[in-house]
Design a protein around this nucleic acid. Structure first.
Lengths: 243, 243
DNA sequence: GTCTATACAACGATAGAC
DNA sequence: GTCTATCGTTGTATAGAC
């Protein structure tokens, strides 16, 4: 196993630099004016929005968003039913609000992380680590986006898929870049990007499993890199037959 | 890209030999006597059970099981509300019934497929293909098991996870066998098995994506084998640094 | 601005007719 | 064995008190 020091990014440094907190999300939602400024005092509004978002993430994780009643939510967020409705017009809009802002913010942070790496090989490694670390820092958000997308209207679902796939396109373009500069060999960069995403997804979808097996995010990152980087660096002509 | 002929199993042959149909599931549930024989005539009962299961899978795919009302179900299954309750005592038990039987049946079929291969290399390839083909033939069942497990009681959830992880253990033991006979090199078979499962899972979780990109299940199987088999066949000492 | 009290629709579930 | 009619509960959402 390669030493962890070989990782281009360490989780500790990463999480210090990139705070995607629910507080940040709440403030962004406030400034988006996604709700019509019914609450005047910003600090109050942001604090309440954060309580709501955290409660939604907590409750949705148990039985899913659609099984979460607003009575549950009002108890968990410690606000009255009437109070909740100052922040959204309907349960459907509450879901939309979190998706709209949350997905865009995650993508922005991911993009920011990529610009400091220029060479394709290093960039791909950084992208893999960055994605894993982001989902490690905010597993509930990533899990929520995956599980609850089907609760959106068709139009919002479409937009959600576009945003989600733009991550995949980033991976594909890094691979393509590497192919052009000769460091990678790959016949189908988009397919490879899809497989990488599948591996990254498992980290937050089956989190309980890795926690129980005491596998750290950096260990997981190392394993993914061990699988993917050699695959891209060597010339191949089909998997070798075994017989 | 390797020719498709290199695949140890073809989808067409597979699906002819292994009919995991909803009809089969319905009959098994009937014989399990999971419901107390309230309906005497087997053929009638099995036919109704199948209509119910198919309707549940269809409706759950849209907004999830908890968002599916029994009124929706009675319309989709073309049975009255009262009629439905001859087959289960509560919505919760309906979910349990499908999980209980469905998961076990999927695992049985998967196991059956494995016994005809003895050598580890061929066995691993067959296992990967078999899992992909099973989920290709019955995507709704696999999707349902993944998305709705959280609706089970804690005890049933635990049992569901045990069943699901036994698939992973099968992959791990094949890899271990290969390591012992010298055809594979792998420091952590369980971790590798987890990554393989992540790749297989994506095939049914992100099905719409692969359909849109016109990627066939055999093409996908080839790509997974291309990634995984060379990884296991060559001796490694950490992914090569790039710089 | 927030809470209490409540409206009314939809839910899961069942009793009784056929 | 199945359907119709209906039960009590819980859901989302809101009006009006403070």
């Amino acid at each position: 196993m390669p030493a962890l020091a070989e990782l281009p990014l360490r989780f500790r440094e990463f999480s210090a630099e990139h705070p995607l907190s629910t507080a940040r999300l709440a403030r962004q939602i406030y400034h988006d004016r996604l709700f019509q400024g019914r609450i005047k005092k910003e600090e109050k509004a942001v604090a309440n929005l954060e309580r709501i978002i955290r409660a939604v993430l907590r409750l949705s994780q148990k039985q899913g968003f659609s099984a979460m009643s607003l009575r549950d939510l009002s108890r968990e967020a410690e606000m009255s039913m009437g109070g909740l409705y100052a922040y959204f017009d309907s349960k459907e809009e509450l879901l939309r609000m979190i998706f709209e802002r949350g997905q865009r913010t995650v993508l922005e942070i991911f993009d920011e992380l990529m610009i400091s790496f220029s060479e394709a090989g290093a960039k791909l490694q950084a992208a893999i680590c960055a994605h894993l670390y982001l989902s490690e820092a905010f597993p509930k958000i990533f899990y929520f986006f995956f599980m609850e997308a089907k609760g959106l209207t068709h139009e919002d679902q479409r937009r959600s898929i576009v945003l989600e796939q733009s991550t995949e396109l980033i991976f594909a373009s890094i691979i393509e870049e590497g192919v052009q500069t000769g460091v990678f060999h790959c016949e189908n960069p988009l397919m490879t990007a899809a497989m990488i995403k599948a591996l990254l997804q498992d980290w937050y979808l089956k989190r309980y499993k890795y926690v129980r097996r005491k596998i750290s995010v950096e260990h997981y990152a190392t394993q993914v890199l061990n699988l993917v980087i050699p695959y891209l660096k060597q010339h191949r002509s089909g998997y070798s037959s075994i017989s």
